[in-house]
Design a protein around this nucleic acid. Structure first.
Lengths: 348, 348
DNA sequence: CTGAAAGCGCTTACAG
DNA sequence: CTGAAAGCGCTTACAG
């Protein structure tokens, strides 16, 4: 029993041809019920499993999706952004649900990954996940496009192919954040996070935020803005800069929860009370947001839906089906870091 | 250029046989340098990639490892234990380093996963990761054993095959925790976490802890002990029970960080100051441990080393090499949740 | 409903 | 150093 059984072994035992075994195992309706059951029984008994390599080779299909996670090279080697970790979880679940296997790989932006997975037939398509400066991506995405690789990505713009991108309605999220900060009685705002063109997601959050302020009649031309990549320490550092600048601020909207946690840490260290003196609002709703003290009010991105959309849309791409749904609506999550609402209402 | 090139296309273009192409592409030394370079140049130009399905089928090797993550069915669907998430990260990295692909899958303990990945030739071996009640595993592990599947697992005992398991020295970790709690001036201890035989890891931590107390001359027969699975809410609940029991306690050792975070939350809600009135010690050193307030002192498990060991040992198993190294030494991480050390020393 | 045959794209003895 | 050939274990027209 050391040797694995093949479909020929089963055919021999069942007294049928190997092609019939193959059909029976795939529940083909053109196989006699009796024959099918006999074959399947023997297969079970022999603990037979179809050789994926052989069947993939023959079918020219792998039923496998590849997930490429880009790490911001600036962050700590060992830490993965918790938001992506949670995406990973939902993608894995979505794959299982659609009968796909999932190949996972981390990549530095510098790696030469383009066109590896699908070209080597290891996967039928690729899911790209990554924060950071999207400008660096463009070249790689263009190559994938040129090679007609099937792929979808989170957040990043694919020129000429908006349907390849799945993302949260970041503008809407920023808007909700602005509203909440206003509803909790704040008037002097700051924004922490990169809002350059290299960070389209953060920019959209910023814009939504500003638009909410403007809508409320606040002069948004003077909002202090400090850059930070999505890490605790960047948020901490940016807050130091903000404090040094001596601007009157009673509320900070952060482009991500990780930044917000760093902001809170800095504020606490400086003896500034959150939310009494300065309110802090995050974005993402990572698990740590609820562990933070005070609990971080934030904008939740529905990672579970995101994972499903990523997987399902990629599958549609592979099967030449049209893609329609690519936007995910964010949700306001109110905890303690922005203080009590004065006439606030939960979105949705 | 829609059709993918095969080794025959390259052979034709290079004016050599297909076998020579195959050899040249794998840097075989028996191929003339000139020929090899010509072939490789053409392959690059055509963006050729070896078809993994074909080569795996022929070689009967997939260069792929499968990671099976068991979820405790009792915990929230959408959340994965952050400790395992960090393991996932280091395993992925270790795989990349050894040129292996990684197939990731979540499993409920109830799923019928045994023998799927290797039998279907999708992976050469399996890495099992999971907390929870190991008694439930036994049957499955026995089956894997019977089918001669290559596998390693984290923490769980494999009867008769200790070399299949990689784990932290949990006893040592518990001992370090006990020492630290004593060194920070505490005398009345409690333990929160399952320490039954179904949780060998937690049990070992508990035992190390008790041994440290005994060593310090403390009567450890009366240590209150409350069960909790590894979640925040279980820790919170167990703390309520502890408080209701009215036992005099000034330090709680928790079997995991997640439990500890729940304990701290409960204590805070009850107006009990940490660490002034009750010190709290965790185990794992998940990212949230440093986000907690106060910062959680804990026992760090070296996930990066764990991931490497898991991957490397599995590879050894696959290649019939002996396995020697399976234990990982834990490390004390001092933050604020146990108060100031009076003559404490960092382990290692 | 079933079988014989071709072929997916490689790797690797075997022969030269 | 190179080539012709076999074969890994399937799936799927094709024929009956």
């Amino acid at each position: 029993m050391k040797e694995k059984a093949t479909s020929f072994d089963i055919a021999y035992m069942a007294g049928v041809s190997q092609s019939t075994v193959s059909r029976a195992l795939r529940d083909s309706p053109q196989v006699n019920k009796e024959t099918r059951e006999k074959v399947q029984a023997i297969a079970r008994q022999l603990n037979y499993k179809v050789d994926k390599n052989a069947s993939n080779l023959r079918k020219q299909r792998s039923s496998t999706l590849a997930l490429l996670l880009f790490e911001d090279p600036t962050t700590d080697e060992s830490l993965i952004n918790p938001f992506f970790l949670s995406m990973l979880g939902s993608i894995t679940r979505a794959c299982a649900k659609s009968g796909q296997d999932l190949l996972v790989s981390f990549q530095q932006l510098s790696d030469d990954w383009h066109a590896d997975y699908e070209d080597s037939k290891k996967a039928d398509g690729i899911i790209l996940l990554g924060y950071g400066d999207y400008v660096d991506y463009e070249e790689k995405l263009a190559k994938l496009l040129a090679q007609q690789t099937h792929f979808v990505c989170w957040g990043a713009d694919v020129l000429g192919h908006p349907e390849f991108t799945i993302r949260s309605n970041n503008w809407q999220g920023g808007y909700l954040a602005g509203e909440h900060l206003i509803n909790t009685g704040h008037r002097n705002f700051a924004f922490i996070g990169n809002a350059s063109e290299g960070s389209p997601e953060f920019s959209a959050r910023y814009q939504g935020f500003i638009d909410a302020l403007v809508k409320a009649g606040i002069d948004a031309t003077q909002i202090p803005h400090f850059d930070a990549i999505s890490t605790e320490s960047a948020g901490d550092l940016a807050t130091e800069q903000l404090l040094v600048s001596k601007q009157a601020v009673d509320a900070i909207f952060c482009a991500s929860d990780l930044i917000a946690i760093g902001v809170i840490r800095c504020l606490k260290r400086r003896g500034i009370r959150v939310p009494e003196e300065i309110a802090v609002m995050g974005f993402d709703d990572i698990p740590a947001a609820s562990f933070a003290s005070p609990g971080l009010s934030t904008i939740q991105q529905d990672t579970s839906k995101a994972g499903e959309l990523l997987v399902n849309n990629l599958l549609k791409l592979i099967n030449n089906q049209p893609i329609t749904d690519t936007l995910i609506e964010p949700k306001l999550v109110i905890r303690q870091s922005c203080g009590a609402a004065v006439g606030d209402s939960d979105a949705n």
